[in-house]
Amino acid sequence: MKPIDHFYADQQEPLKSCLWALKGIIENYHLQLEARWYYRLPCFMYQNQIFCYLWVDRKTQFPYIAIGKGVQLDHPDLIQGNRTFTKLLFIDPNKDIPIEKIHNIFDRAMTLYDTD
């Protein structure tokens, strides 16, 4: 099994199902997004750049999508904290995944890559 697959398989429920679903949502968003194990993270690359990655917050145990170039985005649900590159979108694994919100943020993020 590849390291990227271990990341998903090694999680406990409901986190495991939520992460697998997020992976599918991200991969289905754009045909050119490529899932890759990069910097020991499950990343999704676009034009050989990190578009986003998935991770789990240690304190809350909530998964989040870290949006590459996210610091350039203004969206009320994105959290920057002390990050200089990404902003985070936290997902509650016990609720329905906000697909429309994810797509809206991704639409905004995609414009940052298409202008490079």
Rank of each mutant, 00 (worst) to 15 (best):
R58A: 14
I99A: 00
I105G: 03
P42Y: 03
N104E: 14
D5C: 01
D74R: 14
F51W: 02
T86S: 15
G70D: 07
I50T: 13
Y53I: 12
N48G: 03
L31I: 04
K2P: 08
Y8P: 09
T84A: 12
M1R: 10
D77Q: 15
A9W: 13
D107I: 02
I97A: 05
V56G: 02
E34L: 13
S17D: 11
L54G: 09
H75F: 01
L89K: 03
D77P: 00
P98A: 06
R83H: 08
K101S: 04
Y53E: 03
G81P: 01
L33D: 01
K101E: 11
L112Y: 04
L73M: 00
Q12G: 07
Q80P: 04
L112Q: 07
M1P: 13
L89R: 10
C52D: 06
T111W: 03
I102C: 01
F7K: 05
N104L: 14
C52W: 02
F85E: 14
H75R: 11
D114M: 09
T115Q: 15
D5V: 05
H30W: 10
L15S: 01
D107F: 04
D77V: 08
K95I: 04
Q72T: 04
P98K: 04
L22E: 02
C43N: 11
F51I: 03
Q49K: 15
R36D: 12
I99W: 03
I79Q: 06
D107L: 08
I67D: 14
S17K: 08
Y113A: 00
D96Q: 15
Y39N: 10
D116H: 12
H6W: 00
C43M: 01
R40E: 15
I102M: 05
L73K: 06
Y39C: 07
L19R: 12
W37F: 15
L33G: 12
Q32H: 13
F7A: 11
K16P: 02
Q80H: 03
W55T: 10
Y64D: 00
N104M: 11
Y113I: 00
I97S: 04
